[in-house]
Nucleic acid binder design. Structure first.
Lengths: 407, 407
DNA sequence: TCGGCTTTGTTCAGAACTAAATAAACATTA
DNA sequence: TAATGTTTATTTAGTTCTGAACAAAGCCGA
């Protein structure tokens, strides 16, 4: 019901920086159009940013019939962000530049169930940050497999990690005196997709991850849908069968209990496709070698995923579905069952919906977490709240590389 | 990616009117808080509105420890809106006051498949409008069972009506020279819920209708989620079974083909609960009389609905689910299967989700359509686009009761 | 080569808002 | 009953944006 988000200038200024970071150099006129702002204001804002040394004028771009555009580019040393991926047995870090490119990364063992896990995480993170460049650190993004009350708060509930109301945001904020944004890992990926991936061209899309579990990030009108308690996108627990194995959530017949990695490996062992000691890698190898049992396992999983996603597509009407996650390594085997199941279960007008499978890298999760920090300029005080404002201040002021007391 | 919706004053002015219409009289301070605007601006805006004769000062409300609030109320003759419900065999009209209350209603036979259906609709609508009051008519809202490209455009696709790309919006605009807003009927209901119903207290909720078909309206952060092509909420075609009757959409196992009215009646006939000539009324009567076969039919339907909604709730994480539609007349029989199915299929943190069943009236559909017109003040140029601006202009100018050439 | 045409970028007046200070009108409490 | 506090409403000064007009800098066709 709120009417008009307060027009704060720092939102605009850093939106310009983020836009240039995500899409490369652009003219003032381009920026004004893209950010839905008058050319007059863009002139004034860019003048300030150039004076502050955050932007610089590049060469002219060839004329398109009129006056040639003077391109503007980022001063790439303007900032960096750190992304953290937290899972049950390890954490991964990346440092990204202001344009989202990964500069360095690391992975460390970590026990989320240890009593000292918060101190452990702090220590590991401190070590990683210390190794970085001297550029101003805009903030820390943390991706977790679970639900987060608010990005800027960072109270985490996660069955997978065994966490209940863990105040990861406030803890890290206190330790590092930096803006800290916490988000569900799939939502973070969706933000990254929106900034740097296929989602750039789409306002409404669905990011689906397959791997240990199954999850979805939902982007509507360009922003991530979080739902009431930050728990939207839990498609892993869509009921797909009246009967079925007991899921970790306590219910029967959840999607995840059929197509999660544990389930696929278990049924592969049951059918004798792989040995008791082997795992997903062996199963994938078997499928690659055209073992019919192995390909059937993937194909059945694809079938179930396809029908479940048909329901989600009917519910949300996205433009495109983007498949990500560790499980995509075997996607060619999934798709055999997925494609027909999805298409045939859709109403005719949706049957042609686009499905994209992007290449997956180890660091993608952490990169997504970092994207949350870089996305705050577009946030207009919505998701990231207070912490978003702090990120913007750091980006624009740029005077204090670290350590101000700003929690 | 847009940054800041252009701050148009007419948006604010009519937002005040709509707020008062939806929530009753309020003080300036209340309004400023509710609309997220400074008290200073509220003083200035209300001064204008009072001068224009749209608002008037009421008595003081008892003090809550400070200066007592001067309440502001709508001048109720400030405007009216007409809502139209279109289904295959009839149309229904309502005229509502600026506060959303129904003033009069009518229902007329109508053949959506006739070649002259557009002319027929125009004639019926013209007749209904002619019988109304002399107050300025703000606009016409049309609810259809199908998808609409954009509210302010009004190009309709509806399998149920047999319509493909029917330009209902532009046709009515040309005929009546009034703002015309077209929307999917369930989405329209969701807007009405948001303005006048349970949804007033919730930013994220789900409106589910049961009746001839099954549909959902999704409200996220206070606004209706329309999806890419305006087709979000088609939960009737969520696949719930690998096998099942052929659905009208061409697929098998859709939710609607199990729990739509036609299916329930058919299975009641099959089981001999009702005669070949009887319909839903007879089935409900049988269930009311505790016929075990009849109650089982409803209970099974409730069970299927519950499991399907569990998937939707996992996907969207709403605060509350609101059940509406003609089918709610038999809800007590549905709920027997619905409640356990829904709760047991939800992950623990969602298991307590609120479910509300509101009383249903014949004119609710048309009232929902009218609500779309009255909701445009809150639209901030988003959904209703150009037509929303026109509604606001009519509301604020109020000089021209009808007939200006303004399409 | 000279006017149209188009697109980019700037300037400037004014609109739309806010923040902060202040007044107004009550309640509570000593 | 006087002092203190609370909530509502208004005024004033200043900031942030837009719209419109205009200058700049290229194209193109005659």
């Amino acid at each position: 019901m709120a009417l008009r988000p307060a027009p704060r200038t720092d939102v605009n200024r850093s939106a310009i920086l983020a836009r240039l970071g995500a899409h490369g150099p652009a003219s003032r006129a381009d920026l004004a159009r893209a950010l839905n702002v008058s050319p007059a204001l863009m002139t004034s804002l860019t003048k300030d940013l150039i004076a502050d040394g955050l932007l610089l004028e590049l060469d002219h771009s060839p004329s398109q019939g009129g006056r040639p555009a003077r391109m503007l580019g980022l001063v790439s040393s303007a900032g960096r962000a750190v992304g953290v991926k937290v899972v049950a047995d390890h954490v991964a870090f990346v440092e990204v530049g202001i344009d989202g490119t990964v500069r360095r990364s690391a992975s460390e063992p970590f026990d989320a169930s240890a009593t000292t896990f918060l101190a452990d995480l702090t220590t590991l993170l401190r070590r990683f940050i210390a190794g970085g460049s001297r550029e101003p650190l805009l903030g820390i993004g943390v991706g977790v497999p679970g639900s987060v009350d608010r990005q800027g708060n960072g109270l985490v509930d996660s069955a997978q990690l065994g966490w209940q109301q863990v105040p990861i945001g406030s803890t890290l904020r206190r330790e590092f005196a930096l803006p800290v944004l916490v988000e569900n890992n799939v939502n973070a990926l969706a933000v990254a997709e929106r900034l740097y991936g296929v989602g750039r061209q789409h306002e409404n899309f669905l990011v689906v991850t397959i791997g240990t579990g199954v999850g979805a990030g939902i982007v509507v009108d360009g922003v991530v849908l979080r739902g009431n308690g930050g728990g939207a996108g839990e498609i892993g627990h869509i009921p797909v069968s009246e009967t079925g194995p007991l899921c970790s959530c306590g219910s029967h017949g959840c999607l995840e209990s059929f197509i999660g990695e544990a389930s696929l490996v278990a049924s592969a062992r049951e059918r004798g496709v792989i040995g008791a000691g082997s795992g997903m890698a062996a199963l994938r190898a078997a499928a690659d070698a055209e073992n019919p049992e192995a390909t059937a396992i993937f194909s059945e999983a694809g079938h179930r995923l396809g029908r479940a996603l048909a329901g989600v597509v009917h519910t949300l009407d996205p433009e495109i579905v983007i498949i990500l996650g560790e499980g995509t390594a075997a996607w060619k085997h999934w798709s055999f069952g997925f494609e027909p199941a999805l298409r045939s279960a859709l109403i005719p007008s949706r049957r042609g919906i686009a499905v994209a499978v992007e290449t997956w890298q180890d660091e993608s999760w952490a990169q997504g977490a970092a994207a949350i920090v870089l996305a705050t300029p577009f946030d207009s005080e919505g998701l990231a709240g207070d912490q978003g404002r702090l990120v913007r201040e750091r980006l624009v002021e740029q005077s204090s590389p670290q350590g101000d007391d700003l929690l």
